[in-house]
Design a protein around this nucleic acid. Structure first.
Lengths: 360, 360
DNA sequence: GGCGCGTCGGCAACGGGTTGCCATGTATTG
DNA sequence: CAATACATGGCAACCCGTTGCCGACGCGCC
């Protein structure tokens, strides 16, 4: 069994290498950190010796003198939400391309947790990407004063932001529903602290205005499947034929919740989500949704952060806007498919109660 | 716009506090790191001054002298796989309880990436949790010699391990299928480098032996939905009535792939997965699966790692085994539901080709 | 009064690179 | 050939806490 309490082998330092290569420690240091600053032959010799001795540069020590940890924090609202998986991938890839390490922080949809975690981590990282932050604008600005910060999925004045084209996404969804004959759309709201939630609703208001489609809102609900199921309950009290959900998880919850109450999707109700998570393609019927370039989001935000860390000013003018697209599946359909039929949309047929899951 | 290039306010150090409080820097240091070592009045005064000056202890500097970064690495095979979300949560919670920060590393199912990432990160962290590592035993042992390591979902001699009770899980699944009248089970294999894949197959062999159920294996396939869809193709060439898939993602791929080919689940084929990911409850039919206590896995592994970091020897005897349970949903059913009917199970009816997803 | 012990604070040596500045030597230029 | 420029390497300070060791001081006890 390995004994970690007292490693017998002392660490090899630049001083050891310096002695062995018969140069000064500074030369060893430069041979690695600024090779151009030292004669190439000398550098080569130093490298050879270092190799032979098994020298590994200590990032910690480097950190202390350069005040760069080469780490960035990536804060996400909820690791359980699959949207973040691709964002994380994009961010990690960009970070690792720049030789940075990513510290992932899961805020668990809590303002407080998020703030505490960021406070705790801030001094250890060179910069922060806030993906779907639930913190207040002022809190974010405060952090942005102390460290480079890039905000994802949210627009805040004076802080660099990367967002997706929510207005256009909503517009596409509304157009799509409009073409299918829907003249009322119900927005099922997500967390109030979520910036996309706000802009999606506002965009819907606007699009409804232009396209002469009536809109209303219910919620807020938790941005999860369970939240969608709760929304389904409420929706039963105030029926609708077309629903735009804050995100795919809620949309899936709606599909399930309504399905259990005998509502036919898309026959009775058309549902559109946001994010295009994997499950949107798994649920029955497949979910029509506004897809965002998740990987690109994480990657763009992180790359921008890295340039800021390297000293660039940080583009705080207009946020960077990433394009979206509407993925049409089978949760949306023409209103009243059989026009002659006078059946009200919410008549309950085949009320299949959700079969209890048998646990072993 | 904040200027991060040259913060005008220099950092407050113990030296600043020392001058102001009229004590030596060591006293300031001790006032924070070993309060018992200093007079309580002095400590209080120091703390007041520190507060007034806005002193914050620098974790980086502390790190250099104590050789403790208070960070641990958590390596997962694929962040896209939802199983890891709960594991990450458990690990993060445990880490943060111990005042440790977690660095998440996504190996993207690649042995090489994983090894490189661990090598890169190793010197910066106090310990490592390898969740579902794809590296070789010897590579893992090598890392374990240099840093405390806990392995999750895998058993390796001389390295502390946390695993779930795969044999029992398989056994339950086989019993369940057996009770439904199945006498053949096909195992759809996942990555060969995956330890659970191996043990699940061996457990299946054994359970089959005892319960007089014939077993066979196809694969390996990628442990993803796409992998499951490919497996469905191959399965068509060699039909089966009961399938045990390496994990839920593959099982879902199977359900979809077979569904597209007109195979009825569970009428023609019963399918059981592993992990009980959220999507298992979303897919139609709901997936019967072997559920593991994911949160507890991450938490237990991390807690054990922390004790090792604090100097405990690291329990390398038998791996810690966590219980599993079978969650029965609707992807499993009795074989030949209408016994009188002589129709071969693989007759294709209602061949619903997967409708092409329209992209906008 | 003398001695031993416990408490408390300071000194100084780390930990392991980084870098501004200077000295030396060589190359380039007028 | 003198003057200047550039390449290269070393010195020493610095980053910011931590900790082993020592000395000063106060107290209790014999």
């Amino acid at each position: 069994m390995p004994d970690h309490t007292r490693p017998p082998d002392k660490r090899v330092t630049i001083y050891d290498v310096a002695v062995e290569a018969d140069v000064s420690p500074s030369t060893v240091s430069r041979a690695f950190s600024r090779p151009s600053r030292v004669n190439s032959e000398t550098a080569e010799r130093v490298r050879q010796v270092a190799e032979r001795l098994g020298y590994r540069t200590s990032p910690l020590a480097r950190t202390l003198s350069t005040a760069r940890t080469h780490m960035i924090a990536l804060v996400i609202a909820d690791i359980t939400n699959p949207v973040y998986a691709e964002i994380v991938r994009g961010a990690q890839e960009a970070a690792s391309d720049g030789a940075y390490t990513t510290v992932l922080i899961d805020a668990q949809e809590s303002d407080r947790r998020e703030r505490e975690a960021v406070e705790r981590t801030m001094s250890t990282v060179d910069g922060i990407v806030l993906a779907s932050s639930r913190m207040s604008d002022s809190a974010i600005r405060m952090f942005a004063k102390q460290r480079p910060v890039v905000v994802l999925n949210r627009a805040i004045a004076d802080v660099p932001c990367v967002v997706t084209d929510n207005p256009r996404g909503v517009r596409r969804a509304v157009e799509h529903l409009g073409e299918l004959g829907h003249d009322h759309i119900t927005y099922v709201a997500g967390p109030e602290a979520s910036w996309p939630n706000g802009i999606r609703w506002r965009s819907l208001l606007e699009a409804g205005m232009e396209l002469e489609i009536k809109v209303r809102q219910i919620g807020p609900f938790s941005p999860t499947i369970a939240g969608g199921e709760r929304a389904a309950e409420e929706l039963c009290a105030r029926p609708a034929t077309a629903v735009l959900a804050f995100n795919d998880q809620m949309a899936i919850g709606l599909i399930r919740g309504l399905g259990q109450r005998g509502v036919d999707i898309p026959g009775d109700v058309s549902i559109v989500g946001f994010d295009n998570i994997v499950a949107a393609d798994i649920v029955t019927p497949g979910l029509t949704t506004v897809a965002a370039p998740l990987y690109a989001e994480g990657s763009a935000a992180t790359r921008h952060l890295l340039t800021m860390i390297e000293g660039a000013p940080g583009h705080t003018g207009r946020p960077m806007v990433l394009p979206v697209r509407l993925v049409v599946r089978h949760s949306t359909a023409a209103r009243n498919p059989s026009p002659g039929r006078a059946r009200p949309p919410w008549v309950r047929r085949r009320p299949t109660p959700h079969p209890a899951t048998r646990l072993w």
